[in-house]
Amino acid sequence: MKPVAFDYYRPQTLSEALELLADKGDEAVILAGGMTLGPMLNLRIVRPRAVIDISRIEALQTISVTGSVVVTGAGLTQSEALSSEIIAREVPLLAMALPWVGHFQTRNRGTLGGSVAHADPSAEIPLALVACGGTVVLQSRWGQRRIGARQFFVGALVTQRRPDEMIMALEWPRSAPDAGHAFSEIAQRHGDFAIAAAACTVRLAKPDRVEQLVVGIGGVEDRPVAIDVSSFLGQAPGEMAAKLSEYAAASVSPMDDRSASAAYRTALTKVLVERAVNSALSIARLQRGRLQ
């Protein structure tokens, strides 16, 4: 199980990398942590002429807070993100999703950008980004494009990234201090890709009024999706989790394949949304109490 022969490039700077990418186009693949690409290379499922290793471009490994968003460089490793105080404070949903991503050893190397670029429908980081309403910053030699995460993911392994572009950064809207977040997931084993996952963010204007609400679902459709929950805004949170979970289950069009039937995915959607909404609500209540 050895990869095909390829040319290996290790640009030190972003512009070098973009230059290479412009030159090689779709004959090149971008290698960051290699947690997904590595296995696919070894299995010879991915057979590039060139591999562009961006893991040493320091500009891609930053975390910063800019106005209303937290910007994470595409090369930031999952374990760095997991131990980042900024992320814990400003993007709690991501912080909650990260422990579900792979294992200690793979998080040490796997990157946020790599996971987003690969666009596995079950992956946690893309789900968190979609749920947050985050943005993918794409850069090519010709310029920059910023695409909302909800548009970025097109299908399983398919995104709007063009071959000459690379993901440079991800923008995560900062969480409101009184928001409650939750992430729930069902996987066959610990660290496996989710069969289904749900992410929820909620804010209460008053104890009985939902002001902000996001429900994201991963692993169920061929890309992570945010459910349209506008009809629940302004309502009282009382019975919301149960109703919302029914609603979410009815609004997804689940994949149906050997790894899980559509019926099972729908059933999990219901369970997970209910769990996520309930725990996000109770955190939101706590936060409100704390801030008052």
Partner: peptide, 8 residues
């Protein structure tokens, strides 16, 4: 840091 050496 503990990492895999087969995917590098």
């Amino acid at each position: 840091r503990a990492v895999r050496s087969c995917t590098q």
